[in-house]
Design a protein around this nucleic acid. Structure first.
Lengths: 342, 342
DNA sequence: CGCTCGTTGATTGACGTACCTCAGAAATCC
DNA sequence: GGATTTCTGAGGTACGTCAATCAACGAGCG
């Protein structure tokens, strides 16, 4: 009734423990025929390696790196906090994580960091970076070194990452559009769309999803061309304030990226905050307060704790060479309004 | 730099391994003063027991029971499926779970099941039941037997359960009301509120949350008195159809419980499906299809996979006597619309 | 004094796996 | 056929913990 062990495999295959061990751990020195015999026995008995015992025996410690954009960014801050909290709660699991801040907008600095990373003794990394050709090449090298790589929050679809942990930006944009349209209701008017930069692939994809739904379902609304603040808070505030003041037919604001604090300041200063439907991304202390204060109507987000835990689980699974449980690692696109604030 | 082990504790406390073991596992035969010495050493070194090694040594297998309402119920079906899937993915963890279906509406049958449960060799149970005095007493007995108990989806606030795994019904109701009000927009009218039974505490709490927000924020809408179908599909269909046909000022329908399939049939037959804003609870195959078909505008739900995994984690933590990681076990109130369907 | 009891130490054998060594068998080459 | 290489087996140690046994010590008791 109990689970088969390596001993059972050895007996079933008619070989010794040492041979079973060599086959299971893909060590050399076993004839092909014998390898097959052992593999057969494994299949017949339905043997699954006891990862706990294996890790105990091999004294495995997982060393992971989180490569995150540096600089003031509410979302990244939230993620760092969540990471710290998660690690504190799981001190028992032999897991050491270092955070590597990088100036994400500087491709050379990013690559330098990734090169340092490959030199360090790290088993895997979760990276949150825009995908440039340089980054892609660096990831290729890291993978070649045998490192496990997951893309965090922002995908690297053309790099050989093992997994993407995050939500689909396109459907996030669609959800934002749907709520925007429904919240605005029967009124006609313009919707201001703001972001830091359309270079970021997630902003771009959100915009595409947003436009698709707006065009298909809310023909009374006109989504204005994206305005980019280029990570400049003052610029963000000014742009938003001016747009809100000058355009009387403005009925909604869609904030696709970070910089929600200056955006909200701009809206407040314009004096039109109350009459506008505002939808933003990522639940941070800023957007949370704005929801409570009714300055933001809905936030499209992903649970940061889930993101961090999922990244860690996936990295561990890769290192252990075991499959991941898809259903658990699928990150949902969360809609947060005042009433379901976690 | 590596983690301290029992050996380190023994050395630090100046006692033998055997004594450390006795203290850690709270076995008798150690003087209070010595116990303190060992505890001190544990604190000083920051020792945490290696659960993996412990489980390996003690050959612990977790036997858990899920007590779920029997009978056709989309939500319970979804949960069973998710449970099966989770167990298959985690065959490696020595975990055996049995499902105990009960006729939830029959207090005596429920108690009989719980009594059988206490006789069986089960370490813990996740129960999804309405809280009656009999259930409360049965839970008291199970706890007294040393069983770990979590309330699943529907809380048992007056029973000594170890934990509640699920969302806050009150805020779920609030979220439903907020979306209802905003989706309906400027129009005035009535909102039909339907459930199986207001006896179920979650339906009741949802209603309270719903009414609170409706009254405070959407004074143009009138939430009608709850209509109960008492688990009768035909009744549900008839009620809804009649209400939709006869009340021309109806603008929305709020479904607080299960029975969404007959509800939707009733709406379809009334011919007014398109013009009504419909909000329901729990994402199942029925509500999912209805979202896609635009028959339902939003679903307030909890991720069933998360529910199941959380219940299992909490039960395991209770049995192991280790604290749970609150942040991970907090179940979010999910808002699902067509665009963010998982 | 001998006895029991409470407390502690010392030691051992699991649990399931990894990893190492050494010896010997089998296959391959010349 | 012998030498060499390639496989394979047997066995041990370790990982950190649990659980059990046996021995030993001292205090307290009658």
């Amino acid at each position: 009734m109990s689970k088969p062990t390596v001993h059972d495999i050895a007996r079933e295959a008619g070989v010794s423990l040492a041979t079973v061990d060599r086959v299971l751990n893909e060590r050399p020195g076993v004839r092909d025929r014998t390898v097959e015999r052992v593999r057969d026995a494994v299949r017949r008995l339905g043997y699954v390696r006891n990862t706990q015992a294996a890790n105990l025996a091999r004294q495995r410690r997982y060393a992971f790196a989180f490569v995150l954009p540096e600089g003031p960014n509410q979302f990244v801050e939230t993620m760092r906090a969540s990471l710290t909290e998660t690690l504190e709660a799981h001190t028992t699991e032999l897991l050491s994580v270092t955070v590597w801040p990088v100036p994400a907008h500087d491709p050379h600095a990013v690559v330098r960091t990734l090169v340092r990373l490959s030199a360090s003794q790290v088993d895997g990394a979760a990276v949150m970076l825009p995908e440039t050709p340089q980054v892609r090449d660096a990831i290729v090298r890291l993978k070649a070194d045998g490192m496990a790589i997951v893309a965090l929050a922002s995908d690297l679809p053309n790099s050989p990452r093992d997994h993407f942990v995050g939500i689909n930006s396109h459907s996030a944009g669609r959800a934002a559009a749907s709520l925007m349209g429904r919240f605005i209701g029967a009124r006609k008017g313009d919707v201001l769309v703001v972001t830091n930069s359309l270079q970021a692939r997630d902003s771009l994809e959100r915009r595409l999803g947003f436009d698709a739904v707006m065009a298909a379902e809310f023909s009374d609304l006109r989504a204005l061309p994206s305005i980019e603040s280029h990570n400049d808070p003052d610029r963000m505030e000014t742009i938003v304030r001016a747009a809100a003041s000058r355009n009387p037919s403005l009925v909604g604001v869609y904030s696709m990226g970070s910089g929600n604090a200056p955006l909200l300041r701009g809206l407040r200063r314009s004096g039109r905050s109350d009459e506008l439907t505002v939808i933003a991304h990522e639940l941070t202390s800023v957007t949370r307060q704005a929801l409570v204060a009714r300055e933001v109507d809905a936030v499209i987000t992903q649970n940061v704790g889930h993101l961090v835990r999922s990244a860690l689980r996936v990295l561990r699974a890769r290192v252990d060479g075991i499959p991941i449980f898809e259903a658990q690692e699928r990150i949902r696109t969360d809609i947060v309004i005042r009433e379901n604030l976690p």
